[in-house]
Every structure is written in structure tokens, then in C-alpha cells.
């Protein structure tokens, strides 16, 4: 019975349950960064990894429910994918280019096209760089 009392309570317990399913190898990235996301796709029994290249326009949720929205423009048509960050089907995430943005959600990019939809590159150091 003592064991039960040592155990985390309330939300902490739920966090403990989620923990083994969280990834620890997610690179630090922010909204505005260009990402290469490797997505596992099962096709006719075979599994392969498809890379989705685009700009991260939103990071939402916390813990195991955290998702990212990645946007790219394909043949003039905007494509957005909402990806669960900790899903096993997300094989890899690579930061290709850092963006300097002043918003947490870049929904304004949807109304813009071509040169207006650019995001300036961020060359500054970030706190997460120090290691």
C-alpha cells in the first residue's frame, strides 16, 4: 500500500503514463522554421518514409497531444498537414532553415502568395543552442 502513496497524484500520474510514449529526440524548433518531416507511409504492405518539406506555422497542445502544422505550396496550391509530434509514424524531423517571426501562429501566410509569403531567416542564437 505504501507504493501507492509514493506514486504521483492527479495530472502528474497521467503524465507518468504518457511519458514512455513521448519522443526524446525531437530537435528544438520554433514556429517559422522550415522543416523536413519524415512520415512513415504504409503502402501495399510495404513501409517507406516520405519527406514533407514545409514551414511550421503552428505548434499546438502539450505532452503526447502536441501537434505541428506544416505548410507548403505545391503548384500554387497550399497544402497543410497537421502532424502529431510524438506519433511513431513521424520518423524524423529536421530543421532546414530558421525563420524570424513575431507570431506564435502563422495563419496569415494563408492569405499571402509568392514573395509576400516569405519568412525572413533567423541567424540569431537561440537559448536552446547552448549545450
Amino acid at each position: 500500500m505504501s507504493k501507492q502513496n509514493d506514486q504521483p497524484k492527479g495530472q502528474d500520474l497521467l503524465r507518468m503514463v504518457e511519458k514512455p510514449y513521448l519522443k526524446d529526440n525531437i530537435p528544438p524548433f520554433r514556429v517559422g522554421d522550415m522543416l523536413d518531416v519524415g512520415i512513415r507511409i504504409r503502402e501495399a504492405g510495404k513501409e517507406r518514409v516520405q519527406t514533407f518539406h514545409g514551414i511550421c506555422i503552428a505548434r499546438k497542445g502539450g505532452g503526447i497531444r502536441e501537434t505541428i502544422t506544416v505548410r507548403r505550396v505545391v503548384q500554387g496550391q497550399g497544402v497543410e498537414r497537421i502532424l502529431p509530434l510524438h506519433s511513431p509514424s513521424i520518423e524524423s524531423i529536421k530543421v532546414v532553415r530558421r525563420g524570424k517571426v513575431r507570431r506564435a501562429k502563422l495563419h496569415y501566410l494563408r492569405e499571402r502568395a509568392g514573395r509576400a509569403a516569405r519568412v525572413r531567416e533567423d541567424f540569431r542564437k537561440r537559448p536552446e543552442d547552448k549545450k
Binding site: 497521467l14 510514449y21 503526447i64 502529431p84 510524438h86
Partner: peptide, 11 residues
């Protein structure tokens, strides 16, 4: 204790 979500093998 409460509810949450976890991933199964197929993601």
C-alpha cells in the same frame, strides 16, 4: 485516475 491518450503500434 483520469483519461489521456497513448499511441498504439500502428501510430
Amino acid at each position: 485516475k483520469g483519461m489521456t491518450q497513448i499511441f498504439d503500434d500502428s501510430g
